[in-house]
């Protein structure tokens, strides 16, 4: 048998094998085997991610000092402005306290429970915007759980294995998040663009959206809990002949520097049953 025909034979056999694996995986039969292989690899992945973060922090620390000084000056200015607001808000607080007591009777808001998890890797496909975290079904993670940081919404768990899970970032074009503008109270839907920009679509034409306005999850549709920050408005596009206006937002989360995230474990979106894979 010539070398070329031998190669063709090997390649054909392996493609048929890969197609069989694809079919088995699509039917869900490979899940236990995948988890078995991924478990030791995720430990290695976690080790590598930790070392990488340590080296990155060491290299970038000098430039961070300059950034922090600049940030400090900005925050001092912000503090002065906020102190003025505090005086006005103290007056309102007295009213709000009474209203809050009344509201508490009507609506008991459960405390969110969180599972902190390390980011151990990113999707190897450059076309998919998702991350791997070092917690899986063994830690009580289930498909659909929202993921956030102290700065805002990160995404949602879309794939769960025994020790790791995949989180679809809100910057993925397939992610859809119902949101609300904090001041104008207008609703919209997050539409991540393929070039990485975050757009908000389906905003009522009559809404007055201000630049810098905070955008939060609305909780509509039951996909995410309400009031998690998503970003701030960078610009607004409003055309008279269109049904809706759009806004470009700057996310509050820095998706390139995610180290640890919080999975909200006591929230499952509507339509996803507990423990679903």
């Amino acid at each position: 048998m010539s070398r070329t025909s031998s190669r063709t034979l090997i390649a054909s056999a392996l493609i048929i094998l890969a197609l069989s694996l694809l079919a088995l995986s699509a039917a869900g039969y490979l899940q236990p085997a995948e988890s078995l292989v991924v478990r030791p690899l995720s430990a290695l992945q976690s080790w590598t991610a930790t070392r990488y973060a340590a080296i990155r922090d060491f290299i970038t620390s000098p430039s961070d000092v300059t950034t922090l000084r600049q940030r400090n000056a900005e925050l001092e200015a912000e503090v002065a402005r906020l102190q003025q607001q505090v005086i006005g808000l103290q007056e309102q607080q007295a009213e709000a306290t009474i209203l809050a007591v009344l509201l508490k009777y009507a609506r008991e808001q459960p405390e969110s429970s969180y599972q902190a998890s390390k980011v151990i890797g990113r999707d190897v496909s450059p076309f998919l915007r998702s991350i791997w975290i070092g917690s899986g079904s063994d830690q009580g993670i289930a498909r659909g759980m929202p993921v956030a940081t102290d700065r805002g919404l990160v995404g949602r768990v879309i794939e769960v294995r025994a020790s790791v899970s995949r989180v679809q970032l809100i910057t993925d074009p397939e992610a859809a998040v119902n949101l609300r503008f904090q001041q104008s109270r207008a609703d919209g839907v997050l539409a991540a663009q393929l070039n990485g920009e975050l757009w908000v679509d389906l905003i009522d034409q009559n809404a007055e959206i201000a630049q810098g306005e905070l955008v939060l999850t609305s909780g509509l549709g039951g996909g995410f809990p309400a009031d998690i920050p998503i970003g701030r408005v960078l610009s607004v596009r409003k055309r008279d002949y269109e049904l809706f206006q759009q806004a470009v937002i700057q996310p509050t989360v820095e998706f390139d520097n995610l180290d640890i995230v919080l999975v909200i474990t006591n929230f499952l979106p509507v339509g996803v049953s507990d423990g679903a894979q």
């Binding site: 995986s25 995948e34 496909s125 791997w132 679809q168």
Partner: peptide
Amino acid sequence: IGWGFIGGSFLDLFSGVPFGSTAI
């Protein structure tokens, strides 16, 4: 060619693409 199959399968474990597609 064998490496392509093995390496592709490992990559598929760390990706949201259908398992086996990178191997192919």
